[in-house]
Computed example of a mutant assay.
Amino acid sequence: MINPMNNARLLPWSSPDGKPCYLAGHGNGYVSRLADNVEAAQLSSAAELIQEARPLLAGRTWTPDEVHLLACVLTASLADVHRVAESRGARLPAPDGDEPDGDAAPGGGDGGESRFPADAFV
């Protein structure tokens, strides 16, 4: 018997108690289209936030409260975008013969150097 949860889609929202929500099925119905629209809105919001954050950070005229607020909204947006990436990545077909080898660094990174410039946190 095929387990329908093997093909479940991670939805871009959580249950009231914070647990992930999943959709089983082929992805052609109302909830799937609603999830697509929510994901698109989350990605669009993240892009707008990036456009607002860059000049604020580049100007170096921010107050600690502004930086704190920016960190909070960027973190929330990053969590949304991460969830979208997780959901979409899980729905990609695995290439033939592609099995995880366990060599990847925790968190999905490659274990290499930071992608941030040396003066990013000055």
Rank of each mutant, 00 (worst) to 15 (best):
E66M: 09
E39H: 02
L23S: 00
G97T: 14
E99F: 10
V122T: 11
L57T: 13
W62I: 06
D17V: 08
A40W: 07
D119R: 12
L10M: 09
A85F: 05
A120M: 09
G27S: 03
G109Y: 09
V73Y: 13
P93E: 15
L74Y: 08
S87H: 15
G107N: 09
D103Q: 11
Q42T: 14
A24S: 10
L10P: 06
S14V: 11
G111W: 07
L56I: 14
D96N: 04
L74A: 11
R91M: 10
A104Q: 12
P64V: 12
H68W: 06
A85I: 10
K19I: 05
R33Q: 05
F116I: 05
M5D: 06
S87P: 07
E48Q: 13
L70M: 07
T63K: 15
A71H: 06
F116V: 05
E48H: 13
D17C: 04
P16D: 01
L70D: 00
G97P: 07
A105I: 12
W62L: 05
N28T: 14
G111N: 12
P12V: 14
R33C: 01
M1K: 10
D103Y: 11
V31Q: 14
Q42H: 15
P100E: 02
W62Y: 06
F116Y: 02
D80H: 13
A79F: 09
R60Q: 05
D80E: 08
S32E: 02
P117T: 09
G111M: 15
G97Q: 04
H26A: 01
G29V: 04
E52N: 09
P64K: 02
R9P: 01
W62S: 04
I50Q: 01
E39P: 00
A41E: 07
A41N: 06
E99L: 14
V81M: 05
P93W: 08
D98S: 08
L57M: 15
G107C: 13
A85W: 08
G89F: 04
R83L: 08
T75W: 04
V73N: 01
P4A: 11
R91I: 10
S44I: 14
L70P: 02
A46C: 09
V67E: 04
A120N: 04
L23V: 03
T61M: 03
K19N: 03
E99V: 13
L56E: 03
E66S: 04
Q51Y: 08
R115E: 05
N7F: 13
Q51L: 13
A85N: 05
A104V: 13
L92Q: 14
G107F: 12
L56T: 04
W13F: 09
P93A: 07
M5Y: 06
V84E: 01
A85Y: 12
Y30F: 07
G109W: 10
A40G: 01
D110Q: 15
V81R: 02
